[in-house]
Nucleic acid binder design. Structure first.
Lengths: 153, 153
DNA sequence: CATGCAGTTCAAAAAAACTTGAACAAAGCG
DNA sequence: CGCTTTGTTCAAGTTTTTTTGAACTGCATG
């Protein structure tokens, strides 16, 4: 059954454009009672140490996984964050926002270039399109916090 | 300037997990006054006929591009859909919904398998996790229409 | 109805993304 | 300290995805 759940998450992360190893790791943590170490993941999933290490780092960055506290042991154990709001928040913060922000910067640059257009008919068309893009970006920026709010309970 | 706009869309579609050619094609249509034919796209973007054909098909499926009406000519000309609501709607319909739906089916299957678990402690844990997944999927299904609504004006 | 043009298809090539594994760093332990 | 164990890094290898281009379909036109 674990395998099916892992596959379920593999599909899930692929939809989000994340590497399969993230889905495998998160999926196994999600469907396992006790926290797991890097070596556990390598053994149980049959992935390399490199993948497991990189996957865990990214999952931590996304806030999807955290170190489990207090295990009388040298190695680190991990447990999944299972709160949808937190997961979505991490994804937005790490994967969506940066693109939205860099998009806004590029757009500002494009707008400047367009303002140099000589032909007034072209210029009006370009301005219209650029305004549209700006409104899309703005709306995107507004929707993200709503999303987080809606999904958090 | 057109090139910058095209690149802007290339980045955009990549974030959505779509091939770069879609961004190029849509981007050029978006920043061009008159509708363009397949050959125009091939020439101006320097992509192959195959790419242009496949890209256009997918964009039509997504509702992001449509044939321009009435051109006294044998070939077909295309123009972009520039209504955010429609674009988001097409993306959700073609790219998000199918995954959500197949996810729900897989989840049902997983739930059945889990119900066969012998150990009562494991069983409770599995059920808890599966319920959580079901609630995530359900919430996803609820959020999509809201998204479309929020983005459409 | 034969020719030429618009567009599609799909196997192979190219590019991009991901994973591996061996070398390395860091840190605890005796 | 020196040894062992845990975890990281990154160049090379593998897999996956995308693009190409040549062969093909079908239609319109002379």
């Amino acid at each position: 059954m674990q395998r099916e759940v892992v596959d379920f998450f593999v599909d899930g992360v692929k939809v989000l454009g994340l590497p399969r190893s993230l889905g495998e790791i998160y999926g196994l943590l999600f469907i396992t009672t006790a926290p797991l170490s890097l070596d556990d993941l390598v053994r149980d999933l049959g992935i390399s140490k490199g993948s497991a290490s990189q996957g865990l780092r990214m999952l931590r960055t996304l806030g999807a996984v955290r170190e489990a506290a207090g295990n009388g042991d040298r190695r680190t154990y991990y447990e999944p964050a299972v709160d949808l709001k937190k997961l979505v928040g991490g994804f937005i913060r790490e994967q969506v926002r940066p693109h939205l922000d860099s998009g806004k910067i590029k757009l500002r640059f494009i707008a400047e270039t367009a303002s140099l257009t000589a032909d007034p008919v072209d210029k009006e068309f370009f301005n219209d399109r650029i305004e549209r893009l700006e409104s899309w970006m703005k709306r995107g920026g507004q929707v993200l916090p709503m999303l987080q709010k809606i999904l958090g309970q």
